[in-house]
Structures are given as C-alpha cells and as structure tokens.
Amino acid sequence: MMQLLTGPLFVASLLIFVIGLVVRAVLYIKGLDAKLERVAYSYHRERSVPGAAMSIIKWLIPAGTAGWRTQPVAMVLFFLLHFGAVLLPLFLLGHTVILEQCTGISLPALPNNVADILTIASLSALALLALRRILSPVLRQLNSFQDWLILALTFAPFFTGFMAMHSASSYDLWIQLHVISGELFLVLAPFTKLSHIVLFFMSRAQLGIDFAIKRGGDTRGGVFPW
C-alpha cells in the first residue's frame, strides 16, 4: 500500500500539483487584456515592476498594510496558519529527505521542536479560522462548501503528520493517512481556491501593476501606499 502511495501516486499527485498550478498561472497571464482592462501592461516597466513587487511584499509582512492593520484577528490567524503551511512542507525533516532523494535539492531541515510549534500553531489557526467562519456574521453571509473543503484539506495533512510524529503505537496508520491526505491536498490544489498558492501572486502583481501604470503611478511618486 505504502509503496503505491509513495511511489507512482506520489509522483502523479506532485505532477498534478505543479503542472496544474503552472497551467493556472499561465492561463491567468495569457488571459490578461491590456485593452479591455485598460492597463498598459507592457509599458512603464520602471514603475510596474516595483509596483507589482511591493503589492506582493507588503501583504506578505504582518501588519505591512492598512488592510492587515485594520483586521488584526484575520491577520494573526492567516499568518499563524501560513508560517507553518509554507515552512513545514518544504523544511520538515523527512520531507527534506524525500526531496533530496527525488530531486537532489538539499534544503535545511527545521529542528523538531520548531516543527512541532509550527504545526500546533497552524492547527490552532485552522481551528480558529473554522470558528471564525461559524461565528462571524460577515463570513456567515459568504461561506460556501469550498471554504470548508479547503480548511479540511489543509487540516488533515498537518493533523495526521503531527500524530504520526507523536503516536508510537499507531504510527503506521497515521503515516498512511498523512500521505493520503497530503496527496489529496496536492491533487485538488489546482482545482480549488487552494490555487491561491500561485494566483495570490498573480492577482496582487496585477493590481500593483494597475496602480503603478495607470492609477497614480506617474503622479503619486513612489508605490501605492497599501
């Protein structure tokens, strides 16, 4: 079972993840239309490149924008989740071993206690995000099936991974569930809102370019004050 899961199925799910996200990014860029959207994408690179960059970078820093500062609860939960969600898949020992064997790329591994803290932080954030979805009148107006789906899809690999790490007696069960839930995440990412893994960058870059080229780039002096 594990041979199948960690062999061809793993390769397949990784390929679907990478290719799927690349396709979505490429389709996004190809679908941009300077005339229809009234943004001269290929002009004024001296403004649009820093504009796109700052539009992304400022939002990747906690409290880096007025948007984050005026929504501290959302901000804390998002960053708590995403620190672990980004760092653990890449830098967890075990993941690094597999990555090295498959690709030769050798990434540094997180110390185990740091990994534990990040995992607990991510799991707590997910639980609190779910709670926020249930309790907030704003979110209750917006909630859809997909919102719950991606919360579950994200929760499962973290939870099963943590349990595999800490449950000696049921290690085999947890590690199998971990691989399955991880692969499910990978396979479904390009087709759900998890595609924000690339589309966040696309969309933010686009808006940064819009403001840099068209909406004040030549009069404001400097980039848009997010």
Binding site: V138, L142, K193, M202, S203
Partner: peptide, 20 residues
Amino acid sequence: KSRTRTWLNICAHCGMCADS
C-alpha cells in the same frame, strides 16, 4: 477574461472587504 474570472474564483470569503 482571466483577471475578473480569477478575482471571482479566488475570493477566500475572508470578509476583510466588509469594513472597507
């Protein structure tokens, strides 16, 4: 096209636009 369609698809229903 893709800008608008992506905007509509990718909305995380996070609710941060409400108070704005």
